[in-house]
Every structure is written in structure tokens, then in C-alpha cells.
């Protein structure tokens, strides 16, 4: 078999374990929808996907409480997927050093991220000084509605 070197390779491979991770199941189920239903009911198990590397850039995780609305991330986002949102003024009570309690009107600035437009470059999480934006591990993001609740981080 000097001219067909692949033959030996095939024979060798036929006894080897496949290198592919058989995600989500080892065998094709008769009905995919029924299979996933039984998974949610806890009757069947999914073969887990290959683990993501430590520096993986997945779906953005936004921490609203840490954000101060500075808008630096808007400046580096290649796809303009982030927009600044000014929430309507609300009354906050401020206590100064003397103990005087005053009421003030305050406008809150935060961001809104459209995951459907995101290209997962991770620049926003790199530039954020407050650590409010981070790249998560989630990568199964297929959707029919790009404005669905889980497709917008705010």
C-alpha cells in the first residue's frame, strides 16, 4: 500500500476512541424537543460541552450597582452595542456632616448592552475602571428575538 498511505491510518483509527466531544448527546435522539424536555425534567443528562479557557470571552455580565455610568465603554465598543441610559430623576435623601437631612433630585446614568450586536471583543471589560462589565462564560446564545430580555444587559 505504498501508493495509498491512508489505508493504514484508517485501520488504526477504527479501533481508537473518537476525539470529538459528543455534545449534547452520545446518540441522536428520536426527537430533539422531547430529549431536551426530558433534560429539563431531570430524566436525561446532557454531555457537557468542552470547558471554556480561563480568558474566554462569552456573554457580557453587567453589574449595575458597580457601574457609575461614565460611558468609557461606549468609546471603545466596535459595534456601538452599548448605549447610555439616563434614568428619570428620583429623590434621594442626603445626610451631611451636621446631621441635616435634605432631599435632592438625582439622575442616574447607566448603560444598556445589546448582546445581539456584541462581537465579544472584551474591550468594555478591559477599560471599565469599576469592574462593572465582565466577559462571562456563557456561549449558547442563539435566539429568535434579538431584543429578548436575556439579549439585553442593563
Amino acid at each position: 500500500m505504498a501508493k495509498l498511505p491512508m489505508f493504514r491510518e484508517i485501520l488504526g483509527q477504527s479501533v481508537k476512541k473518537p476525539v470529538t466531544n459528543l455534545f449534547p448527546t452520545i446518540r441522536m435522539p428520536k426527537s430533539i424537543t422531547r430529549f431536551f424536555r426530558s433534560v429539563t425534567e431531570g430524566k436525561a443528562e446532557i454531555v457537557p460541552p468542552v470547558a471554556t479557557p480561563p480568558v474566554f470571552r462569552g456573554k457580557i455580565v453587567y453589574d449595575r450597582t458597580a457601574c457609575n455610568g461614565c460611558g468609557l465603554c461606549l468609546k471603545v465598543c466596535p459595534t456601538h452595542a452599548i448605549e447610555q441610559v439616563a434614568y428619570p430623576p428620583m429623590t434621594v435623601t442626603v445626610t451631611d456632616e451636621k446631621g441635616n437631612v435634605t432631599e435632592k433630585l438625582k439622575t442616574e446614568k447607566r448603560i444598556r448592552i445589546y448582546i445581539a450586536s456584541c462581537v465579544f471583543c472584551g474591550q468594555c471589560s478591559d477599560i471599565c475602571t469599576k469592574g462593572a462589565v465582565a466577559m462571562g462564560n456563557e456561549f449558547l446564545l442563539a435566539t429568535e428575538d434579538r431584543f429578548a430580555e436575556e439579549q439585553i444587559a442593563e
Binding site: 468609546k75 471603545v76 465598543c77 466596535p78 459595534t79 462581537v119 471583543c121 474591550q123
Partner: peptide, 9 residues
Amino acid sequence: VQIVHLTDR
């Protein structure tokens, strides 16, 4: 800085 990641695509 934005374009450089646009070029990746």
C-alpha cells in the same frame, strides 16, 4: 481602537 476589532471580522 474600535476599528481594530472590526477588522477581526
